[in-house]
């Protein structure tokens, strides 16, 4: 057995480091006490000020955002109102044009321009007996008792019917040719095909 002995390592004993701190003296001066209270208050005021600042900032930013949105809406509403008024004005113009065109003065004049004569005779067809009641004669300028030319003033007529292109005071009626039965062919009658330009329904000539 070997004998040797191991010296246990001896660690130097270090005295624990003492933390020095000021110990309040049980008897404080009045000035010191005031300073302490003041410092505490300052901390509280600062905290309050921070909160108030954040709050005010928040309210201001929110208000700015809401205000901005409101302003945008107000200008939008104002713009729309102007547009609405412009449309109402346009509608008024169009309505007056319609009123002018449908006024009896315009209708009488345009009917006259188309060669129409008022047939003043009341004539009725009795369906049950196929009998004509009344004086069924065509109207003519010499026999019509009604006034065809417009004599009634209308100072607010802003539109008048224009005669359609090619129209005249006399209607061009097709000539009827008497045919014998032998000349009648059993083919389909030729029907004029109506072709609309650009496939668009023609608008009324009035405007």
């Amino acid at each position: 057995m070997s004998a040797y002995s191991v010296q246990p390592a001896i660690r130097p004993v270090v005295a624990p480091r003492r933390h020095l701190r000021a110990v309040q003296s049980p008897v404080r001066s009045a000035a010191t006490s005031r300073n302490i209270q003041s410092a505490t208050r300052n901390v509280a005021v600062r905290a309050l000020a921070r909160k108030a600042l954040v709050g005010i900032l928040g309210v201001w930013i929110t208000s700015a955002i809401v205000g901005s949105l409101c302003d945008t809406s107000i200008y939008q509403i104002s713009q729309l109102k102007h547009e609405s008024e412009a449309i109402a004005t346009q509608t008024q113009v169009l309505q007056q044009q319609v009123d002018s065109l449908r006024s009896p003065q315009n209708l009488a004049t345009s009917a006259r321009n188309l060669g129409m004569i008022v047939n003043s005779n009341p004539v009725f067809l009795k369906v049950a007996t196929a009998k004509v009641l009344g004086n069924a004669v065509p109207a003519s300028l010499s026999t019509s008792t009604s006034v065809s030319n417009n004599l009634i003033a209308n100072s607010v007529m802003i539109a008048k019917s224009k005669p359609t292109k090619g129209s005249s005071t006399h209607m061009n009626l097709p000539t009827v040719t008497k045919t014998t039965s032998s000349s009648v062919k059993s083919t389909n009658p030729s029907v004029a095909k109506v072709v609309l330009p650009s496939a668009v329904i023609p608008a009324s000539p009035t405007h």
Partner: peptide, 8 residues
């Protein structure tokens, strides 16, 4: 005031 039929 508008009297659309004039003197009618």
């Amino acid at each position: 005031r508008l009297y659309s039929q004039g003197a009618v």
